[in-house]
Amino acid sequence: MTVSFILNGEDVSAEAEAGERLSSLLSSRFGLRGARGDCLSGLCGRCIVLLGGKPVNSCLVPAFRVQGAEIVTIEGFGRTDDYRDIMAGFRKAGFEPCGFCDSARVLVASAIMEEDPRPDDSLIVERMSAISCRCTQPSALIAGVRAAAEIRERRVFGHAGA
C-alpha cells in the first residue's frame, strides 16, 4: 500500500506493507536512523517518535496507522527551539545520554515539558522509565530535564518560575 503522511513537516509518501513497523519504514525509505528499533516489542523505548505530538514506540506502529498522520523524529525535532533548550539544559546539568538513548531522551523530555512546564521529579522519572538504558542516574536525568524546562520557560515567557 502507499502511505502518505507528514514527516518532520513535509508531505511524504512511500510504498509499504500494511503491517510494516514505522521504525523500519523511517530507516529504510527515508534514511532516518534516529529512532532505533531494537527490541521490536515496545520494551526498550529507543525507537520513540512523536505521532500527532505524542511520544510512541515506532516499532509498535504499523504503517497503515500513519496514513494522514504527523510524525516527528529526532532529525526533525533537532531543528526546533525546544531541541536547543533541551540540549542546553542537559549540558548545564552535566547530563549526557549515550548514543543509544539520546534521541529518545530528548523527545521524552519535550513531551514532559509539554505536559507540565515545571515537571516534578516523579513525573520525570516515570516518563523517562519508558527508555530502558542504564547509561545514566535518575538524579542526572531529573537535573537535566529541570534545567531544560527552566531554559524553555525563560525563552517562552521571558522568566523562569520559582
Binding site: G19, S24, L60
Partner: peptide
C-alpha cells in the same frame, strides 16, 4: 495495534 506488533517478529506483522 500494540498486541499485534509486540507479538510479531521481524520488520512487519502478518495481518
Amino acid at each position: 495495534a500494540t498486541s499485534i506488533m509486540a507479538s510479531a517478529t521481524g520488520r512487519s506483522a502478518a495481518l
